[in-house]
């Protein structure tokens, strides 16, 4: 956003191309849809996506609001970051929580991760899209993240009821996106489809995009559970027999609801160190996401039901 050309020069050819492609996709949605929205999940990918939206429409503001689906179990640092970001960029932020889920007391600890995700994320998202009658929704998903995401279109069609049919997707040739839908149907748009995790971090560094401090290593209270390090962000998470809270130097590669996102031990306290660490990392990014391994083909199933 600054006129200082230093950050621009830091972009490699590769990142410049990715940036231009994403900007083209984001503009396309603004031009073709009546009422689009950008899903903002507060994580590093959302941060890049929002930054690209700001760049895409400059000197105008993005002609759509941000939407955060708040499960009530996000890290406190994430909520602080969200509100600060909306203010910093001057964009409208909508926050939605599934009221039925709250009334039923759904939570990730006693309800289980599967029910919690279904009610507080997937259902909540569908309710929010219906409530505001959004016809297109941006998501920050990338094809390199997960098997079923590798087959996702950039403009991904959802029939009425938000159903994704992976067997019956529109072929997507060149950059000639088919944006046509009938009433009640929607499109999910993924401007970061062709980015990798490394691209996201290198771009975040080059463009100096603010990220949630939880991505950087710091001493934090964690519990070791099923071989994963789970952070106790507040005392809603009870300890099981034999468990003890300990302070370790940890950070997160991926952020979700706090009891469902595992931390990794790390000394990386800067973007440079995060990138360095990534280059020698030997496990995949979502290995710390507890919801992915709920059952076989877990992500595809959730996506069919309307999850992002």
């Amino acid at each position: 956003m600054s006129t200082d050309t230093q950050s621009r020069h830091a972009l490699s050819q590769h990142l410049k191309r990715l940036e231009a492609e994403s900007i083209g996709i984001i503009r396309e949605v603004a031009a073709e849809f009546r009422n689009p929205v950008m899903l903002y999940s507060i994580g590093k990918d959302s941060g890049v996506m929002l930054h690209l939206a700001i760049k895409a429409f400059y000197p105008s503001k993005p002609p759509f609001p941000l939407l955060h689906i708040d499960t009530g179990w996000k890290f406190r640092d994430m909520i602080r970051h969200r509100d600060w970001v909306a203010q910093r960029y001057g964009v409208k932020l909508l926050v939605y929580t599934n009221p039925e889920g709250v009334a039923r007391g759904i939570n990730p600890i006693t309800s289980g991760s599967q029910l919690h995700t279904q009610v507080m994320k997937t259902e909540a998202l569908k309710q929010a899209l219906d409530k505001w009658e959004f016809d297109a929704a941006f998501g920050g998903a990338r094809r390199d993240e997960e098997k079923s995401r590798a087959k996702e279109r950039i403009f991904s069609f959802r029939s009425a009821g938000h159903v994704w049919d992976p067997r019956n997707q529109r072929p997507e040739l060149w950059n000639l996106y088919n944006t046509r839908i009938a009433k009640g149907e929607t499109i999910r748009v993924f401007p970061l489809s062709n980015w990798t995790e490394l691209d996201i971090w290198q771009y975040t560094r080059a463009e100096e995009i603010p990220v949630v401090p939880l991505y950087f290593a710091a001493p934090r209270p964690v519990v070791e559970r099923n071989g994963l390090l789970v952070m106790r962000d507040d005392d809603r998470m009870p300890l099981e027999p034999g468990e003890a809270e300990q302070v370790r130097m940890v950070r997160f590669r991926s952020l979700g609801c706090y009891p469902l996102s595992a931390a990794i031990e790390s000394q990386a306290t800067s973007l440079d160190e995060i990138i360095e660490e990534m280059l020698i990392a030997r496990t995949s990014e979502r290995s710390g996401r507890l919801i992915d391994s709920d059952e076989a083909a877990s992500m595809e199933k959730k996506k069919r039901e309307g999850y992002f």
């Binding site: 006129t3 050309t5 950050s7 231009a20 492609e21 900007i23 083209g24 760049k55 400059y58």
Partner: peptide, 18 residues
């Protein structure tokens, strides 16, 4: 040639600009 990073002296094939 307007971009969020300031005006450009030129834009080439593939560049997203205003």
């Amino acid at each position: 040639i307007v971009t969020a990073d300031g005006d450009l002296p030129e834009a080439r094939a593939g560049d997203a600009v205003t």
